[in-house]
Design a protein around this nucleic acid. Structure first.
Length: 303
DNA sequence: AACGACGGCAACCGCACAGGT
DNA sequence: TACCTGTGCGGTTGCCGTCGT
């Protein structure tokens, strides 16, 4: 299988995106929906690689993205999901639909990793959070196969848990909106935030998947959890207005992604520390005993 | 005030995979 | 079935702002 043709054969611009480029990209996506990224540079005149366009959209311009401070519950959720799923950031991000995988990855690498390392003296088992629990009884291949099975089972059960817990959705802690005063340093970042904000009113038209740049099962799960959100087509004609005003988004109605009902999973994931240590120990034992992660979780937390 | 070290984060790179032909 | 193309994903890089000296 050959490597896909890369844009670097052409003259492509690299580096930070400018507000003008963002507006061009946003306008294009409004009109055509996300996808067919290969056509974007050609049809918009952007001197950007198609991959760069996609990345810019999915990680920054896409509606419904929340940036900035991670709440404590988000932090703990990430830690536990990372322990379960490993560095599968897209899968982890599917459980935090308003966060991008890139954001979560960066947050993990810059904050959580250090935090866990700093907390290591508290419990040696914390190391298990950043790497699969090694079992002397299992050789690497066996371990990996088993891990994959465990992940699949865990994800299925998480999905089930989420689907039956709608009633508890109200209990989901709402992460704090980042205040404008805590914005990043760059004035440009501010402007892109504004672009993102103005896109809150936008929902893709037919054939476009709202806020779902990926087709991974995890995202599909995320999408299923937003099924109650109302999606309405936007007026394509509005996209021709390029004056960077919110009014350019002439959607009749729109829906921001519904925060998924996470209380059941959170009640399991957001354990207190003492329970957490017991669980980690048992998870290691479970691997040696041939049990799966989910059995342990169910046995302990019975969701 | 100037400079260097450090940290955070946006963006890039390259591989893997899925779907179409 | 094999190949091609588009897209997704995780790892890594490099820029830029902040902090300390």
């Amino acid at each position: 299988m050959g490597r896909p043709p890369c844009c670097d054969k052409e003259v492509v611009k690299k580096g930070p995106w400018t507000p003008d480029e963002d507006i061009v990209l946003v306008s294009y996506v409004q009109e055509h929906g996300p996808g067919n990224w290969r056509a974007v540079p050609a049809r918009t005149g952007l001197l950007r690689c198609s991959k760069s366009c996609r990345l810019r959209w999915t990680n920054y311009l896409r509606p419904g993205i929340r940036r900035g401070n991670f709440s404590d519950s988000e932090e703990r959720l990430i830690v536990h999901l990372q322990a379960l799923l490993g560095n599968r950031w897209a899968a982890i991000a599917s459980y935090l639909p308003d966060r991008t995988d890139n954001d979560i990855k960066n947050f993990w690498n810059t904050h959580l990793k250090k935090k866990l390392i700093a907390a290591a003296p508290r419990a040696n088992t914390t190391a298990a959070l950043s790497s699969p629990p090694p079992s002397p009884a299992l050789i690497k291949d066996q371990w990996e196969r088993k891990l994959q099975t465990d992940i699949d089972l865990a994800r299925r059960a998480l999905r089930d848990a989420l689907s039956v817990d709608v009633a508890a959705a109200a209990a989901v802690p709402q992460p704090q909106e980042r205040s404008p005063s805590s914005n990043g340093p760059a004035a440009y970042a501010l402007s892109t935030r504004n672009i993102s904000r103005m896109l809150d009113g936008w929902a893709p038209g037919k054939g476009a998947v709202a806020g779902s740049p990926t087709t991974t099962p995890g995202v599909a799960e995320s999408a299923s959890r937003t099924s109650s959100s109302e999606l309405t087509e936007c007026s394509a004609s509005s996209a021709s207005n390029n004056n960077n005003k919110p009014s350019m988004l002439a959607c009749e109605t729109y829906a921001t992604p519904v925060v998924p009902p996470l209380s059941a999973i959170e009640s399991w994931l957001l354990l207190d520390d003492s329970i957490e240590l017991e669980l980690e120990l048992e998870l290691e034992l479970a691997h040696e005993d041939g049990n799966n992660l989910l059995d342990v979780a169910i046995r302990n937390y019975a969701f």
